[in-house]
Write a protein that binds this DNA or RNA. Structure first.
Length: 300
DNA sequence: AGTGGCTCCTGGCGGC
DNA sequence: TGCCGCCAGGAGCCAC
């Protein structure tokens, strides 16, 4: 699943080839990929040159410069338009791949780029989304979604983390998956960060002492950075636009290692469901001490 | 306000 | 062997 490190790798790969190309046309094969119609997406995005690529949490942002006067476009008068931002969320299985012709499965949307390239959005589980924004509405877009701070940004300090954890009864695992508290962490990096911090996933957020909060802060940054350094985790279907796989999945210490020995102490890794998400931890390295959140409800 | 549960979606896999 | 049903999970939405 693409989380912050995977989206960052996609951004860096696209940065080597996308800027400077002109987005000639947008084709939508699956209307559910966007709240906006194909016509609206085309109007807002087509005819503009890619100016840059950014990332906010797990969102990929493609900056498009104002369209240039176009006299050669026989398909229409080429609506003059201002700059735009294309926002893409890969969710579970979204992939952006360059393909000269049709892919193995129909892309949910295709960008025709000039000169002569096509960027396909492939997405087996169809959770991914595309938005076309006016740059002036970008902040409102993310404010409406309650996006928390970037882990590597200046706002995410130990003090911020402690303040956000204060008084929370929800399990740490749920806290880390809440994009309103911190942007970009998903299931893999939440489990791995908690392992690195030596904190049980069911500990209540508010039960952490100052040292534990500091450990969690450090662990989050180290784990996310390690994910980026290893070019992401290729679990499920993550490949970057060049078809490269990451290697962080080989470094995982607890995620999807249920029953296998902890790489540190040899104790069998355990799995519980927290907030409906599979959660993996080492019962010895991540002891259930004080401030435990109530466990999952008994099975019906 | 904080929290948990449900929903979307499909390939893959376990069980019979 | 074949088929049915369940599971995974990011984020939006809703209920309490």
């Amino acid at each position: 699943m693409p989380e912050l490190p995977e989206v960052e790798i996609v951004r860096r790969r696209l940065l080597t080839c996308l800027p400077g190309l002109v987005l000639r046309d947008v084709t939508v094969n699956d209307p559910k990929v966007s709240e906006q119609s194909e016509a609206e997406l085309r109007l807002l995005l087509a005819g503009r040159r890619v100016a840059g690529l950014r990332r906010r949490g797990k969102y990929l942002l493609v900056d498009l410069a104002a369209s240039e006067p176009c006299t050669t476009d026989a398909g229409g008068p080429g609506e003059p338009g201002g700059p735009a931002v294309a926002v893409i969320h890969l969710r579970m299985t979204g992939q952006l791949v360059f393909l000269p012709g049709p892919g193995e499965r129909p892309a949910r949307f295709i960008w025709d780029l000039e000169p002569g390239t096509r960027l396909h959005f492939q997405d087996v589980r169809r959770f991914g989304r595309l938005w076309a924004l006016d740059p002036t509405s970008e902040e409102a877009f993310f404010t409406a979604r309650g996006m928390g701070p970037e882990p590597f940004g200046p706002e995410f300090t130990v003090e911020y983390l402690r303040a956000e954890l204060h008084g929370r009864r929800a399990p740490l695992k749920s806290f880390l998956l809440d994009q309103r508290r911190l942007a970009g962490v998903g299931n893999i990096y939440a489990d791995e960060s908690l392992f690195r911090a030596g904190l049980h996933p069911l500990r209540a957020g508010g039960s952490l002492g100052p040292r534990e909060a500091r450990r969690l802060h450090t662990a989050l940054l180290e784990t996310l950075q390690a994910g980026i350094d290893h070019e992401g985790s290729s679990i499920e279907s993550f490949i970057d636009p060049a078809g490269q796989r990451g290697s962080f999945q080989d470094m995982l210490r607890v995620y999807q290692r249920t029953g296998r020995p902890c790489r540190v102490c040899g104790t069998a890794v355990e799995r519980v469901v927290v907030g409906g998400r599979g959660t993996h931890y080492c019962p010895r390295c991540q002891p259930r001490r004080r401030g435990m959140a109530p466990g999952p409800p008994p099975r019906r």
